[in-house]
């Protein structure tokens, strides 16, 4: 009992907020996996990203928290929602039940993965590490930019090339494929495909004059 009370009294407001956002993150990522409708999965993913951003703030990484909100919640999730709306994917979901056997293999193996990671963390001496002394500049844009444009300049340039290729690739993949042969045929023989004009008497319309 004493250990519990001393543990609880050692917790600061930072810890409580951390646990709150961690629980939200885990619960909403469970929702991402469990929801039947992909749109609800995307909305749950927004909650996951937002609570992760809050945890980044608590870990003194403010710049990353802002980037997390802007890039994930602002761009990637919107892209997901766009595609879901565009394709109008109705429930694939009645067919999910056919794969009961597969699910009974997949979920235990994910559990084993987690337990392995948990054991590795639990029996390490990582808890002896203490947080680095907090300076006012920790996690700011300046500190990250300083590293990114000196020591990690080459990965930065490679990342920009990667983004460029991704833009071009996404455009090529998502744009409608042109039917080249049909276009060529239309250029070579434009008039024949058109319907003949209707006869003049057909175009006249009888109007009753009183």
């Amino acid at each position: 009992m004493d250990t519990i009370t001393s543990y609880l009294s050692s917790l600061t407001a930072e810890h409580y907020f951390f646990f709150l956002f961690a629980i939200v993150a885990i619960a909403s990522s469970l929702e991402v996996v469990m929801q039947r409708s992909p749109l609800y999965s995307a909305i749950a993913l927004v909650f996951t990203m937002a609570s992760l951003a809050a945890n980044f703030v608590l870990l003194k990484a403010q710049f990353l928290a802002a980037i997390q909100i802007i890039v994930y919640a602002g761009a990637i999730i919107v892209l997901f929602v766009f595609v879901i709306m565009l394709l109008n994917v109705r429930a694939e979901e009645s067919r999910l039940d056919r794969f009961g056997a597969l699910r009974f293999i997949a979920v235990p193996s994910a559990l084993v993965l987690f337990l392995g990671a948990f054991a590795a963390i639990r029996f390490s001496n990582l808890d002896t590490l203490s947080p680095s002394p907090a300076s006012a500049a920790a996690g700011t844009t300046e500190r990250i930019a300083e590293l990114m444009f000196t020591k990690y300049l080459l990965p930065f340039e490679a990342a920009s090339v990667l983004i460029m290729m991704a833009i071009v690739g996404a455009l090529v993949l998502a744009s409608r494929a042109r039917d080249v042969e049909a276009e060529m045929a239309a250029i070579e023989a434009p008039a024949e495909s058109e319907a003949p004009l209707p006869e003049p008497e057909d175009r006249l319309e009888e109007v009753e004059v009183s």
């Binding site: 951390f18 885990i26 991402v32 999910l96 997949a106 979920v107 993965l113 990582l126």
Partner: peptide, 25 residues
């Protein structure tokens, strides 16, 4: 505190793996 963060991250990773393996969409 560090191990708590790592545990949460491991849990999230395992949830992602379970999602990749079970979902069909």
């Amino acid at each position: 505190m560090l191990t708590t963060v790592l545990t949460i991250s491991g849990l999230m990773f395992a949830l992602g793996v379970a999602g990749v393996l079970t979902r069909r969409n």
